[in-house]
Design a binder for these strands. Structure first.
Lengths: 214, 214, 214, 214
DNA sequence: AATGAATGAGAATTCATTCAT
DNA sequence: TATGAATGAATTCTCATTCAT
């Protein structure tokens, strides 16, 4: 190997390692933007490559199974992020109501920033049932973890049996997701987002009581 | 026109129209079943043709724009059906609570029978925004119509201004749809459907009060 | 057969015999209009049927080979018409120049009224070489006929050998067709049609002299 | 950039671009040959792919809109070629007659080598009116350019106003095209090509005088 | 004779994926 | 690693033509 091709490789490597995560994130962004614009089934890997000005080979380097991989890996990443959330725990020291409101607010913001992903995810699970299973397992793990931590810290939570608490969390998570997705991606339920968030807090409170008495 | 040519025409019409509608209904059924099984973006017009044992040309005869047309025409048909519902009005003479419960029960059954359609509809609107607009307009028309009729018959409804009543109906319809769809097609919220329906009745009651006081 | 179905058949027959040529002419008109609008290769028999509000079966009744038949039969009809033209002979008694000018004027008007047909004809011969051969034979027959008649009547023509006269006529016919078609269907050669016709008269005169001296 | 990476880039560029252009030219050749043989409307992208032993995807990589794109891009290429012709200018220093004869000879040879293209072009503009407009604009640009250059060099041309000269050139171009196309692709006007070319020179001379006196 | 539903071959086009460079 | 040309199966859609009514 001549000195000059060596130099080229070093250049490339440096560039790569610096940019790897950047590229992956760009692919995520462009893919989910296109899904939001054109729908999942009209968004192809080639379109993503063109829009990202990457070669199609690069997409398949990071996501060997194409579209489904993009959704799945973003899903896995987001699961990890949710498991790592220390902020939720900190909040729980305070008022339980405040905890709930913060949780709802965060969830809403998260949906808002990930509209394309949510649409893609709901499309992808239609033909990839293992994704749905992984999602269910992930949800369970996250809220089991959360329930255990909260029961140790907060009195309001410790009076509820762990099983019940997990059930309530998962129920709430699903309920809130269903309503927020409908509001953001199908038809607005309220004319402002603030009104929706306020409503969600109320309905969450109502539902918790409902579930605990059943 | 003599009696005999009249008879001939009736025969012809009946036969053709019966077969035609039969065929269209078969296409609907097979298409939405396939969507339920494989997802919208993995259901092709060819799959439908093969499964229905029609030629592909027949599909395109009835649905010139393919998949999107299947969804759109089923959507239009279902809108018409909803506008024609006299049973809802009859119910409204009775107890308002009973009316609401019946409405929820019907809506749930409808979702259950149309899982494939609901998935397809939500996929199709991603790339056909006019479908979403038509949906919104249709919903508005249906509930304006219903609100006007109910206010004339039932005291509970007549005390609420028409505008408000329409708003409440549309809100409830969206809320219930969001939750039922999530339960049926994504993740169950309750282990039995009956529990969901009971919960929906409660949350609907809560939400109505909430909206009327806002 | 009952009296009544007999009656139906009689009705139909009457209707048919009255309308047969009408229908054929309608098909011609609509077909060539569509060719003019969309081009030959984007004009299908089904489109013609829809536009004509006939059933597709009717088209195939009169034109069993579809598109190509429509062009060919219209071609045959126009050949017959050209062979029947007594007016040309009458003209030839008069001034030879006037004869030529009339011929050119008629040819131009004919092109103007048959733009769609000319486009279709030129497309059809691409894939149906027998049509081109038929066209050549027809042209030859027509101008042989004309030459013979003219040589008997008009002194200007009788001094030219028959063979040469036929050759000149066919040459002129092709030359004028080429120029008129280009002017009408591709790019105008002059800003008004009158200027073109005047030019054609001049160039025809020039060309006749050119040919007779070669 | 070091000398060695420069070399690599040159290699890559050359190789890719050489193959690419080769492929495109092969597609042109095969497509127009097929058009000549079977007609435009019976030549499909699949036929081209089979005949060229490329995959259909390759055709669409270079010509995303299929047939129409093949015609349009060849048209654009030929327009560029015509704008670049320095040889015409050189000729104009000499005798004007000689210039004209050379122009006619070149035009004829060009037609002879591009029979398939000419047929395809005339078919394509039927359903793509923008192609015709582009053609008109291109023609105008080419002859405006040529007129300006010639008027600066040659006395015969400089006495004619620019506008008039452009008009004459465009007229001649259309006239010659009409006649040559008819002779080559429909019906021969003369039994040898040489006779046609001689005739064209004469008729061009006649027409120029005719136009300049109008 | 007239209809138009039905057919299915085939044309147009897209797309996930591979692989040589 | 990165590229992007190439592939060809799959999808969408059209059309000439047939045939039962």
């Amino acid at each position: 190997m001549s000195h000059c091709s060596f130099y080229i490789i070093m250049m490339t490597r440096k560039k790569f390692s610096r940019n790897k995560q950047k590229k992956i994130n760009q692919i995520y962004k462009i893919f989910f933007d296109l899904v939001l614009k054109n729908g999942y089934h009209k968004t192809s890997t080639n379109h993503v490559a063109n829009a990202a000005k990457f070669s199609i080979g690069t997409i398949y380097k990071y996501f060997p199974k194409g579209k489904e991989d993009i959704v799945r890996k973003y899903f896995e990443k987001s699961m990890e992020t949710m498991l790592d959330r220390e902020d939720l725990i900190e909040l729980s020291n305070k008022n339980t109501i405040e905890f709930l409101n913060n949780f709802i607010f965060d969830l809403f913001k998260n949906h808002e920033e990930n509209k394309g992903y949510n649409i893609a995810f709901r499309s992808a699970i239609q033909s990839d049932k293992t994704l749905l299973e992984a999602h269910k397992k992930g949800i369970f793990k996250i809220f089991k973890d959360l329930a255990q931590k909260l029961r140790m810290i907060n009195k309001d939570f410790s009076v509820i049996p762990e099983e019940k608490l997990i059930e309530v969390f998962i129920f709430l998570f699903n309920l809130l997701n269903a309503i927020i997705f409908h509001h953001l991606s199908l038809m607005k339920l309220f004319d402002t987002d603030d009104k929706l968030i306020k409503y969600l807090s109320n309905i969450a409170g109502f539902s918790i009581k409902y579930l605990l008495n059943t």
